[in-house]
Design a protein around this nucleic acid. Structure first.
Lengths: 342, 342
DNA sequence: TAGGGCCTGGACAACGTTGTCAGGGCGGGA
DNA sequence: TCCCGCCCTGACAACGTTGTCCAGGCCCTA
């Protein structure tokens, strides 16, 4: 077989490099680099020859090599809980838009609410040398990020605060939103109000519960044991919790649903009941307007945008100390929250 | 000032390398590499020393350099239209899960239905040397991908076919789904049925329209000019199209909505009308069950999963020729599609 | 016409990692 | 005791790019 074509220009699965382009164009390697990067100091004629060679070979610069040289990757990582949850789609898209405006790409991953997986994703992103990180944390201890922060990886936590490290944080005012939502129910005459929220290790779940309790306390109302339920947002669990609140001699007349997942199950469940139960949802949902669901809306796109803007400001060298921003919620009455107690 | 600490271990913004770890552990560079990669041939004691140094310095392997050496990045790129659209969230998540099972990360980007932006994203991904690409195309000519395909980038198109290149494609049976949906309306007595779809350069929009026409033809029904409207899914446009169909002497008694964006606007619009209009939606929507919206559902997660699995099978060396898969739809009657003509 | 400066182009090292290969130490067998 | 062989370890090149630096040629001016 001897040595037919030891390194053909198009060996399958291999790609042309600047060296190949240079050879074909009959110029030096660095000249190709100059053309590819639009650097000055190349005559029009030379540039044309190089462009032709690039075109002919289908050359595409290898960014890994580039990154190795330059240090910056022009990419940021986003770790969230679940991209399939409609709350995170707009958030992710908003981050992407800001990144794009800064010439950066977005890598994202879903933690599935598992701290181990969150860390795994974050560290994988760091190994890729992302310039920045936006994290919606699942865990509560983020000291594993310390070396990254020291190395200058811009980091912003969103929706939930970081644990045991000091970083920029952008939150929704969960406490205030829940308090306002529950106060709304109380203003419409409710005295026995249930609360179903997410798992107690999730910051927003706890904050919203705190808001609920504050509103009840503000009105001088006691909270019975069976009215509060934190746990998985899995439909079966929510159904059970709701059934428990509606059974017994003193059933709740209204429900505050702690997030969009809880709400969809609650709405389905309440729709099957004869006695009307008032409902206020934390999180807006598509078509909730048509179903007349009163919500405490948070703007997930704004959350993402704000976080990304803060991240890029930091990358651009603003030396501000880490801050904590809180975005307001908006109560949107649509009927379900204005039902009188039955 | 002389030369105090020419290269301190923790210069801000720089990161320790294997060399630094090796120096601290008093071993050779390659030994560190061996430990980091779990390669055999390192004594327990040496390994411990290296691990300690890694810990102390907060070392994290630089994957850019690794990629440069090894050739594979263990990442795949996903280009879709808009991550904020609830149709794409589950799709993206499904792709991510498959990627994760194969140890790969996911980079994604939204084309915003702009072919230029689609190409820009795809080529940026290729410059990062993604191992594979999953594309929901906005454009109709993908010859720009030829060098990438030659170079061995596994590529799968989803939801819409590729233009002028031969690649794996995973589609939903838009034609069949629409035909079945419209036939359903006809079976419930409708003769004047409207169709509002997405822009005519989008493959699915055209296929669904074709399905609509086929169902009408099957029933021997003529389609009047004003009953069909393709265009942007922006609410204002959809409202106008719908208003036009419902005005005049012979208004439509039923509407087939070409996708989820059209449906949400149509449902809102129809809710305000006194005369009931039947509706079947292509695409399911959250809470559509409660609103009684009859839908032709497609499984966007299955679309993503199928595409990703095909992609990884290709990466694992299956030499199958490019194929075209079509996933079925499912008609779910919920009331709106079973209304009699008014 | 000669000299100087500018403009273009190329050689070379470096980025941080991994594959190759060779060397040294140690244990076991003769 | 000596030698062979194995196991562990490290030196070195290479991956593809960019920054630095230098050389050569051209043009302009004196």
């Amino acid at each position: 077989m001897a040595d037919i074509a030891r390194r053909p220009a198009h060996r399958y699965g291999s790609r042309p490099t600047m060296k190949d382009v240079a050879a074909r164009a009959g110029v030096g390697l660095k000249t190709v680099s100059r053309v590819v990067n639009g650097e000055p100091g190349v005559t029009a004629d030379t540039e044309r020859r190089v462009q032709e060679a690039i075109e002919a070979l289908g050359f595409r610069r290898n960014d890994s090599a580039r990154v190795l040289r330059k240090g910056r990757t022009a990419s940021i990582g986003l770790v969230l809980e679940d991209l399939a949850n409609p709350f995170y789609g707009p958030l992710s898209r908003a981050v992407e838009e800001v990144a794009r405006a800064h010439g950066a790409l977005l890598i994202n991953g879903s933690s599935a609410e598992d701290p181990g997986r969150e860390q795994e994703l974050v560290l994988a992103f760091c190994a890729r040398r992302v310039d920045g990180l936006i994290v919606i944390p699942a865990g509560t201890d983020h000291r594993y990020l310390e070396p990254e922060l020291r190395a200058g990886v811009a980091t912003v936590f969103v929706d939930r605060p970081a644990g045991r490290i000091e970083v920029d944080t952008v939150l929704t005012d969960s406490f205030g939103g829940a308090r306002a939502g529950v106060a709304h129910l109380i203003a419409h005459g409710h005295r026995r109000i249930g609360f179903i929220g997410d798992q107690p290790r999730i910051h927003t779940a706890v904050e919203r519960l705190r808001g609920y309790r504050a509103a009840m306390a503000d009105a001088g109302l006691a909270v019975a044991d069976g009215w509060v339920s934190l746990g998985s947002t899995e439909p079966g669990r929510v159904r059970e919790a709701l059934a428990a609140m509606l059974a017994g001699p003193d059933p709740v007349t209204a429900l505050f649903a702690g997030n969009n997942r809880v709400t969809v199950t609650a709405v389905r469940e309440l729709a099957g009941r004869s006695r009307p139960v008032a409902l206020v949802s934390f999180d807006d949902i598509e078509l909730a307007d048509l179903l007349g669901i009163t919500v405490v809306a948070q703007d997930s796109a704004a959350l993402g945008r704000t976080a990304a803007e803060r991240l890029f400001r930091r990358l651009d060298g603003s030396g501000e100390p880490p801050a904590r921003l809180e975005l307001p919620t908006r109560l949107i009455p649509r009927g379900s929250g204005e039902l009188p107690p039955a």
